[in-house]
Design a protein around this nucleic acid. Structure first.
Lengths: 151, 151
DNA sequence: AGCGAAACGGACCTAGTTATCCTATTGTCG
DNA sequence: CGACAATAGGATAACTAGGTCCGTTTCGCT
């Protein structure tokens, strides 16, 4: 479903999206909080920076931060630069020619499955994830919730 | 979305499901028709035989065949024995404890995405795929279609 | 200007997946 | 029974993804 790399990227992005404030956060901090190997995470974040999802800053006090507001970054934006998405366009049965007109037996079925998946990735933003509150939290703050007025 | 191995398995199974007759088909035949490396395909089919999706027969005239009627084999049955499905149960964010009660921020979202995918795999049978007719075929046989009376 | 903290980039190592090859083993046919 | 055709299964090679290491560059701070 997700490669290890894609999963790591998601962990880091969710971490950053949920962290209050606008400052840069360092690789070490993110790695420690998400359990991702620091050196490898650095590579991943560099790729995300290259694809303009993240913004990076060298030197003291530097690190990474979201390059756009949370609600404008989808799960697709995070995963797309890291996984072999070109395979998505290729026919599962290996036919050279396979499209809506000339289709392999699996085409319609697989197109639907693929569509659902990509649709979900495209329609879910980091905002949606960041807004999440566990049931425990919801119960705890049910009556006197200041956090919900954020919006 | 699918590993190479899973894709190859699907190709072979669709081929067998669409092939008329009940006899065994050899690895070489399937490999030639689906473009899958023959030796590797043999390994895959052996695994599918071990997981009771296929039936195998050694010796002259031997090969593989579906172990159950087409309509009782789902895409999930084909892919499940070959891919690391245990990962599906693990929290994407890496939390040791993550379930409906105590959940990570991604839990609900990812559960939905996963559910759609697995649901599709479970609800699509080889019969559904085998029944497929391309638009060209549909047009060709539109008026005098004997094939549709199969059911 | 000099120091240290960070990302950047390249080289390299490791492990898992994909693919090949070779030797059994088991079946059919003459 | 012997020849042959097929799967079964083990060993191994090739490739790719995952992961580490180290020197370089860029920045903030004093």
């Amino acid at each position: 479903m997700l490669t290890q790399t894609g999963e790591y990227a998601l962990r880091a992005m969710v971490y950053m999206a949920r962290k209050p404030g606008e400052g840069f956060c360092g690789v070490k901090e993110i790695a420690a909080s998400t359990g991702v190997p620091a050196n490898y995470l650095a590579k991943i974040l560099q790729q995300l920076a290259r694809s303009k999802v993240l913004d990076s800053q060298k030197g003291f006090g530097g690190g990474f931060r979201l390059n756009r507001p949370r609600e404008e970054i989808t799960l697709f934006d995070v995963i797309d630069p890291l996984e072999r998405v070109e395979k998505f366009d290729q026919c599962v049965l290996g036919q050279r020619l396979c499209n809506d007109q000339v289709a392999c037996p699996l085409h319609d079925t697989w197109k639907a499955i693929k569509g659902q998946y990509l649709g979900s990735l495209h329609s879910t933003t980091l905002q949606d994830i960041a807004d999440f509150r566990s049931k425990a939290e919801v119960l705890e703050h049910k009556s006197t919730s200041p956090a919900l007025s954020k919006r």
